[in-house]
């Protein structure tokens, strides 16, 4: 279990690095699916099997497919990949990467420098416990999630709607001729 965790963690980090360095969006999304699956394996080794299933179903299934559909609607061509390559110059990414690495180093120092607490065996928290807590003390949160999803649907419909252009038909003919 220990070795599984470390292998899955390495796969997750490597595939996420591949996501953020790709020029082609579809390639990045495929690596993103690999990254989410590796994180699902990490969840499984941490004793959260239900969350591993949810991670694959919702993140790798629903969200990535939604992004792929939008990319298909945008008609990306080879020029866009070239332009992406121009945008991602070393002078652009060196500064933020260094500063973020400093922050990560501080975080690692705090995490690894803390005095370790007592060692315990891993106990899995299964779906039954999660469901009992979810529909017991957290019932209000579930209802708020429902409201949030409803607002998301309405907002996405409102924002994604194409506005009909009101053009006079003479103007339309002229623009078609030009």
């Amino acid at each position: 279990m220990e070795l599984t965790f470390y292998i899955a963690a390495a796969v997750a980090i490597l595939s996420t690095i591949m996501v953020i360095t790709r020029y082609n969006m579809i390639h990045a999304l495929l690596y993103l699916v690999v990254s989410f699956m590796a994180v699902a394996v990490v969840f499984f080794t941490l004793g959260a099997p239900f969350m591993a299933a949810l991670e694959i179903i919702i993140y790798a299934g629903a969200i990535v497919v939604l992004i792929i559909f939008v990319i298909m609607m945008l008609n990306m061509i080879q020029e866009d990949v070239q332009r992406e390559k121009e945008w991602l110059k070393p002078s652009v990414w060196v500064g933020p990467a260094l500063l973020s690495a400093v922050l990560l180093a501080e975080l690692a120092y705090i995490l690894l420098g803390a005095n370790p607490s007592q060692t315990e065996a891993l106990v899995a928290v299964d779906a039954k416990l999660v469901g009992l807590a979810l529909f017991g003390p957290y019932l209000l949160g579930v209802q708020l999630c429902g409201i949030l999803l409803m607002a998301g649907i309405v907002g996405a419909y409102h924002l994604g709607r194409q506005k009909k252009k009101v053009i006079h038909r003479f103007l339309q003919e002229r623009s078609a001729a030009a």
Partner: peptide, 30 residues
């Protein structure tokens, strides 16, 4: 959640998942 063997961490993950789904749909529409 695993460290303290409580389901609260996983419930918070479910909430984050819901929020991510709503956020990505609105973001893609934008």
């Amino acid at each position: 959640g695993t460290r303290w063997v409580q389901p609260d961490g996983q419930i918070m993950f479910i909430f984050i998942l819901t929020m991510a789904a709503a956020e990505v749909s609105v973001g893609l529409a934008l």
